[in-house]
Simulated scan of single mutants.
Amino acid sequence: MKKLSYIILVLATVTTFVACEKQDPFVDRVVAPVLVTVKGDTGSPSSGLTTDPTISSSFGETAKLSFMVLELDKTNILDYTKGIDSIPVASVSLLVKFRGGAEIGTFTTGADGLASVEVPWSTLGISESGSTVSLSASGTYKDVAFTKLFKLASN
Rank of each mutant, 00 (worst) to 15 (best):
Met1Tyr: 11
Ser5Gln: 02
Val10Cys: 06
Leu11Ile: 00
Ala12Tyr: 00
Thr13Gln: 00
Thr16Glu: 00
Cys20Phe: 15
Cys20Glu: 08
Glu21Ala: 13
Lys22Pro: 01
Phe26Val: 12
Phe26Glu: 05
Arg29Cys: 07
Val30Trp: 10
Pro33Tyr: 08
Leu35Trp: 08
Thr37Gly: 03
Thr42Cys: 08
Ser44Met: 11
Leu49His: 12
Thr50Gly: 04
Ile55Arg: 02
Glu61Leu: 11
Thr62Phe: 14
Thr62Asn: 15
Leu65Ala: 03
Met68Trp: 06
Leu70Arg: 06
Leu72Ala: 10
Thr75Asp: 14
Tyr80Asn: 14
Thr81Gln: 12
Asp85Gln: 14
Ser86Leu: 12
Ser86Ala: 14
Pro88Lys: 05
Val89Leu: 07
Ala90Thr: 03
Ser93Gly: 03
Leu95Gln: 11
Lys97Ser: 15
Arg99Leu: 15
Gly101Gln: 13
Gly101Val: 14
Glu103Phe: 04
Thr106Lys: 12
Asp112Tyr: 08
Asp112Phe: 11
Ala115Pro: 13
Pro120Lys: 09
Trp121Val: 06
Ser122Pro: 04
Leu124Asp: 09
Gly125Lys: 07
Gly130Thr: 09
Ser134Gln: 15
Leu135Met: 06
Thr140Pro: 02
Val144Glu: 09
Val144Asn: 03
Phe146Tyr: 10
Lys151Met: 03
Lys151Ser: 11
Ser154Val: 10
